[in-house]
Amino acid sequence: MNIFRFAGDMTHLISILILLLKIYATKSCAGISLKTQELYALVFLTRYLDLFTDYVSLYNTVMKIVFIASSLAIVWCMRRHPLVRRSYDKDLDTFRHQYVVLACFVLALLLNEKFTIQEVFWAFSIYLEAVAILPQLVLLQRSGNVDNLTGQYVLFLGAYRGLYIINWIYRYFTEDHFTRWIACVSGLVQTGLYADFFYYYYLSWKTNTKLKLPA
């Protein structure tokens, strides 16, 4: 475990806690895409199938449980919590994410480390994570303004993936035969998706104006 990966996991955890805090404190989920949260819950459920079969470390196991539990908690809140669900922008969150799920699954069947259930679902979760933010970015574009907590949420999420890429570069140079092509390429695509958001976030921070995404 190197510092980049640990920092990546921490920023990932922070992004989820920011979201939980925002929903719990304001009892509102305005501006949050339920579809993105459902995709993330699916990412964790399909990636951590080995939760009970392969023990890597206590840290890994605890973090996997935290990620699964928190993502399901967010989805449950947005769907079931009487107060929160009222503030969900159903007619703005219209990204047809089922096609994305299907495309990722087909890709995972074709491109995987080994053609086993666990590896196919692992590759599926890697591809899905790369595009899971799309409904959220579309929702931000639609709603025009980005309230600061949602903006920070996306910022930490992008930082997590960016740190993971540095972690893979570090491991590539320090460990022999370390290759994670599937995760690396997919992680690069994912970070690229955030790049435009980062650009507008930086502009709004620099010009000290409210973050506006071009419609």
């Binding site: 990636r47 392969d54 890597v56 470390s57 973090m63 080994k114 993971y164 972690n167």
Partner: peptide
């Protein structure tokens, strides 16, 4: 037996 490839990252 070869060490089954573990995904040691999250």
């Amino acid at each position: 037996p070869i060490q089954q490839r573990l995904h040691d990252e999250l």
